[in-house]
Design a binder for these strands. Structure first.
Lengths: 201, 201
DNA sequence: ATACGGGGATGACATTTGTCATTACCTAAA
DNA sequence: TTTAGGTAATGACAAATGTCATCCCCGTAT
């Protein structure tokens, strides 16, 4: 029996996938979690064989969960599922020791198969995303520039961003100016939208 | 046998829900569609009893699909499912003749039950959203103000918005100023975020 | 040792935005 | 008929934003 933990903040998809997986003879769903923090706690308690993690979750995202479990639960393998599968995200996921990666644009039936493969020791990365990842879309922004972009992703004013990062307002404006030049867009909001699309933030 | 059409752009949830519904003795999934336009075509061809429509879809959203089917297929009832269930959206949905409305924060097993109730002639609206809708969250913005907000939702500059709406730049700034005051936020981006959250645009 | 890139800051400048007063036109209530 | 309210525009002003040059401090690769 493969013991599986499922984490996804969207109840409908979580319960649907859990129900489907439970129908498989060799799979047992041992936990359903609504966010990343809960997933970490439950995983450490139940020590499942496989964690099926949604990428977009409150508190901790799927990759962050995998990253934490890597050190504490060496026997547990993680499979990350995401709505918008961007190459940048795949890179981050693989760096965090994720064993499987598939987009929600795949059919639910395929999940069981991926789980079995990963259980058998293989790594499974969705072929389409893997191909995309080769046509390198790495972020041209530095860590700090990304921090600034993240801090301003909800339309915060320069002064707010400066406060939350403990920077001078002028410095923030310098970073934003550099970001706009690198991404070749005209406004902060467009920069945020572009970076979100590409999976850089 | 209740004949059901499912439309959702997210393959994983669509296939999972379809598989689960197919397990029910009295339900038959006759079509799976990836977008609204396709849903309209298939519905008119197959004349299902119930259309289970995702709200967030490319081309036509779930409410728009229901609106079209209302005139052409009077016997077909529509159930709309959405990720972020906002009162404003519910209002729009009911105005379009939708018979059922439930958020994805409900479990997948409940879908079959809702389908049966709607099939029996009842209207089903998720109780939580219905309660929210009473604490009126209608948009305080005028049609034109919404146009401006929509035109600028991707961080377009004032001059761009003005061009795309054939307005003077100053007029656009006046509208934006009014929007910020009404929504009590400090930047365009925050106004866009708020309006999107509330289902106003 | 030194050149380079990242992080952090300042000051100056030009634009863009947001605010406000004021005007005008039109339509639908009262 | 008067009164609102929505749409559209101008002009003026203040504040925020984007751009640039220039400076400093570090660490590391040459």
């Amino acid at each position: 029996m493969i013991r599986v933990l499922i984490a996804d903040d969207e109840v409908m998809i979580r319960s649907a996938v859990a129900a489907l997986l439970s129908l498989e003879d060799d799979i047992e769903v041992v936990a359903e979690c609504a966010d990343g923090a809960q997933a970490v706690v439950m995983a450490e308690k139940l020590k499942p064989d496989i964690c099926l993690l949604d990428l977009e979750m409150p508190e901790l995202d799927g990759v962050q969960v995998a990253d934490r479990l890597r050190t504490t639960l060496t026997a547990t393998r993680c499979v990350v599922v995401t709505r918008h599968a961007r190459p940048g995200v795949l890179r981050r996921a693989l760096a965090s020791g994720v064993s499987g990666f598939l987009p929600k644009s795949r059919s639910a039936n395929e999940i069981a198969e991926v789980i079995r493969r990963v259980m058998a020791g293989a790594r499974y990365v969705d072929p389409e995303i893997a191909a995309d990842a080769l046509s390198d879309e790495r972020s041209p922004l530095t860590e700090r520039e990304l921090d600034v972009l993240r801090a301003g992703r909800r339309g915060e004013a320069t002064s707010q961003i400066a406060r939350s990062l403990s920077l001078a307002p002028g410095t923030v404006r310098n970073y934003i100016s550099a970001i706009l030049a690198k991404l070749n867009v005209a406004t902060r909001q467009q920069a945020v939208l572009l970076a979100e699309e590409r999976g850089w933030i």
